[in-house]
């Protein structure tokens, strides 16, 4: 796999994951909240897709449904021929703020998925991944002894260790400082280019979405709908300094304008 993967993933490629007319209504005391309203997306094989939108636009609801952790009120999500209504072994989720178990050291955190699946841990693969993200030799450390960036890198290793084909990332770098965030964005781009995974990545940062994505699904809030889908055909690998080029800033501005054009904002 190389950088061309994103550009090649065109309309004629088969959909890796398919969201069809997904709607979700939460019942609260004050009535139903329409979190997702008739959302349909075809996720292409091997693409880097960003879900971008303000809080309350239902992007997390959508992602958790794609992980099989939430049910939909109506509509259907499928991975290949499998309907997703419970967690699927081909799909791994990366959560906000790493979500490591504080009572386990890093090594045992990474082995958790193997324990749950009752498989012997693939130590060779784990070692390779730890080395790749620069966490080699940190296996005996506890999460509280690691920085936020290191914790999130460990959680990426945990997800990749079981070799899923789809990675769902729920604002994974939102809690990190700007420098660490740039670093993590570069790392996840590299990992994506090396592994060819299909990544669906939630963010509320337009710049982050433009930097990472092949396509950006721009969502609007209340009810959560798709406002627009934007192709990002910037060449890869994208360096951090790309973010200050006029072309990049223009794309950011264009998306910002789309979001601002919502009638009641």
């Amino acid at each position: 796999m190389n950088g061309a993967a994103g550009a090649v993933s065109d309309a004629h490629m088969p959909a890796k994951m398919r969201v069809e007319q997904a709607s979700k209504i939460y019942q609260t005391k004050s009535g139903g909240v329409h979190a997702l309203d008739n959302v349909s997306i075809d996720v292409r094989e091997g693409e880097f897709l960003c879900l971008l939108g303000p809080s309350g636009c239902g992007k997390s609801t959508l992602l958790w449904s794609m992980a099989g952790l939430h049910g939909l009120t109506s509509g259907k999500i499928s991975l290949g021929s499998d309907v997703i209504n419970k967690p699927h072994p081909e799909i791994a989720m990366i959560f906000q703020e790493a979500n490591l178990l504080p009572w386990r050291n890093l090594g045992r955190n990474i082995e958790l998925p193997f324990e749950i699946k009752k498989q012997p841990p693939n130590r060779e693969r784990i070692q390779k991944l730890l080395k790749r993200v620069g966490l080699e030799g940190f296996e005996s450390k506890y999460p509280r002894e690691l920085s936020g960036g290191m914790q999130q890198r460990a959680s990426i290793v945990r997800s990749l260790a079981v070799d899923p084909s789809v990675l769902l990332m729920d604002e994974p770098f939102g809690a990190l400082d700007a420098f660490t965030r740039d670093e993590m964005n570069l790392l996840i781009q590299e990992i994506w280019m090396e592994t060819g995974k299909t990544i669906i990545f939630i963010t509320h940062s337009i710049a982050e979405a433009v930097f990472l994505a092949d396509r950006i699904v721009v969502m609007s809030a209340r009810p959560g709908r798709i406002a627009n889908i934007v192709d990002v055909d910037l060449p890869r690998p994208r360096p951090v300094k790309l973010q200050t080029t006029p072309d990049f800033l223009e794309r950011v501005e264009a998306i910002k304008a789309m979001i601002d054009h919502r009638p009641n904002s």
Binding site: A67, G68, P87, A92, F95, I116, K117, V162
Partner: peptide, 8 residues
């Protein structure tokens, strides 16, 4: 949710 996502 993390444990569930791995099929716990």
């Amino acid at each position: 949710a993390l444990a569930k996502s791995f099929g716990a």
